[in-house]
Design a protein around this nucleic acid. Sequence first.
DNA 1: ATGCGTTATGCAAATATTCCATAACGAACT
DNA 2: AGTTCGTTATGGAATATTTGCATAACGCAT
Lengths: 113, 113
Amino acid sequence: MEIRSKLWIEIDGKPVFGRGRRFLLEAIDKYGSINQAAKEINISYRKAWGYIKAMEERLGIKLIERQTGGRHGGGATLTQDARNFLKKYEALEKGIQGLVDERFIQIFNTKEL
Amino acid sequence: MEIRSKLWIEIDGKPVFGRGRRFLLEAIDKYGSINQAAKEINISYRKAWGYIKAMEERLGIKLIERQTGGRHGGGATLTQDARNFLKKYEALEKGIQGLVDERFIQIFNTKEL
DNA sequence: ATGCGTTATGCAAATATTCCATAACGAACT
DNA sequence: AGTTCGTTATGGAATATTTGCATAACGCAT
């Protein structure tokens, strides 16, 4: 029996940002490529692309600077807005998981129900 | 922009209990009927039934005492195990949402990104 | 011109979810 | 003893969602 928790941000009831998208942005920052980033976090490029599209539409902010074509095919980098947002989300998430785990063990760690 | 959080318990990677199931059990306790409970929380009877089935299978515990037929068609009541489980889950959930909300406001409550 | 590794998307296929339809039940009432 | 009523119980169809395949476009370097 394991406890799981999830944290995300919505706009008009639709998901805009969460752990998965956080990892995606972080990986794009690391690799300079949506494609590479998707591989890193084990999702298809298609899915990553969909995430980015939805995020940008819903937030109304450009998160990723894209370049198609070129010597190495192009690439992608985070905008400053994306970096700022990411930083805030990281701060929001920090510590929550630990708290939840701690409480779960405290409450459920008994043999009988 | 709203923050949302979710807390649930899994067994072997499969969801066993969460907010929705909590509401379902609470409503069954209140109405003495799966059918009525489902209406209360706005899900189909079919879905409620599936929830209960999965919960009982995965936990390996009987949660609902069912009676079919009879003057008023029958009904359902929570077992003591179900009550105990519910109580623990409620304790687990308590306060988490508030903490998350608080932090969200603190971090994101600025005009600019 | 050609090749390369990207970004960009439509659309088909697979999965998951929801809901419709119907059976069975049994106490109370007629 | 049959009828009624509001339940529980479930298969399976219908819908919705997610995933991923296939392919186009791009533009620099060779």
